[in-house]
Design a protein around this nucleic acid. Structure first.
Lengths: 197, 197
DNA sequence: CATAAATAAACAAACGTTCATTTATTCGCG
DNA sequence: CGCGAATAAATGAACGTTTGTTTATTTATG
């Protein structure tokens, strides 16, 4: 019998993400994707149930990669400043090294696919972060807050900076924005100041 | 001669936004939109050049409404704390009163339409905010920062909280999140602490 | 030779858009 | 005031494409 050609599946995944980043979710057509990945349209349906399944699978996989990268060398027992620093630098590094994956995830995160995909993602990520937060509140290294308030202050500035970077610009009539490590650390300082008791 | 029926255009705009929010940008089909707005498909092309033009025009208009609401009673000569408070409360109020418009803008902002639309938006908004920032740095009420760092710390936590609210939930397995005024003010306090010298 | 991957060709349905026609409204004229 | 001429809004039906997906067939490999 004949085995699946894994390079084909990889080509499909990559081209699909590129198409979505370049022309939006409605720019992803199965026939154009097949052409771009050098396979027959029917081949797509060997690897994915249908168009929706393809998009959801891509989201889950890219999300997983991002989470693993974000938690590299991270430990929920770390001090708050150290733990947040590691997460910020990990996440920024991943996004800067994978700008297309990063733009793809941004697009999914604000589409109707986000909910369906996030239900299929493992809960370890959130459990680890939840433990980290509780540890630090108990140790009085972090003010006690509703989880959503904590999350929005602790992470959304980073995500916004990353978005500015991968988009190449922040606002019209502004010069191109480059997210460098000193800039990341400068923003992180502000966030730590906000969240430390 | 016969004049345009403005209720028709309004119906088209509203239904289009609803469709995009409910089923994504690729869920907006001109024929289904015509049916939903009770007009002929051809009528859409009296008010809009084509599908792209429709989406861009919707973005520009909703963006304008949002900006006007955000700057109500705002003055660039205000103290930093007072000015930021007004903007936060204005923006939150608008989004909570217009959740569909808010979800629509979130979706546009992370799609390829965002750049094209933001180039068509007046620059007064950004000029006013730029003045506000410079005033407060000069008065030593605000630390001096790259504009993108300032922006991401000052506003993205609010946008994230609003998103949690209009989505109805923040993360899987978390109870529904309601953005109330005390929560907004709690987050605002943290951000002010971060940005004050 | 068995088996499953991979394909080319085709399907109906839906897509964005246009065209020939009808409908409603304003306006100059009697 | 009343009425046809003028004009643009509004339409239903149709255009050729492209859509997502399937089917019958071929290809490669254990």
């Amino acid at each position: 019998m004949r085995y699946k050609d894994e390079t084909k599946e990889q080509a499909i995944r990559e081209k699909a993400i590129t198409m979505i980043v370049e022309s939006g979710l409605d720019g992803l057509s199965m026939q154009r994707l097949a052409k771009a990945a050098n396979v027959s349209p029917a081949t797509l349906y060997i690897y994915f149930q249908d168009r929706d399944d393809l998009i959801v699978q891509l989201s889950v996989e890219e999300n997983r990669r991002m989470m693993i990268a974000t938690l590299e060398n991270f430990d929920p027992d770390m001090s708050f400043a150290e733990g947040l620093r590691i997460q910020w630098l990990n996440r920024a590094r991943f996004c800067l090294e994978n700008p297309i994956a990063s733009l793809f995830m941004e697009q999914i995160r604000h589409s109707p696919y986000h909910q369906r995909a996030s239900e299929l993602v493992g809960s370890e990520f959130h459990q680890t972060l939840g433990l980290f937060v509780r540890n630090n509140i108990a140790r009085n290294e972090l003010v006690s807050l509703p989880f959503e308030v904590y999350w929005s202050v602790a992470f959304s500035p980073l995500y916004q900076l990353v978005k500015f970077h991968v988009q190449g610009r922040s606002f019209p009539n502004r010069p191109a924005f480059q997210l460098t490590e000193p800039v990341i650390l400068q923003a992180l300082e502000l966030v730590l100041k906000a969240l430390k008791p």
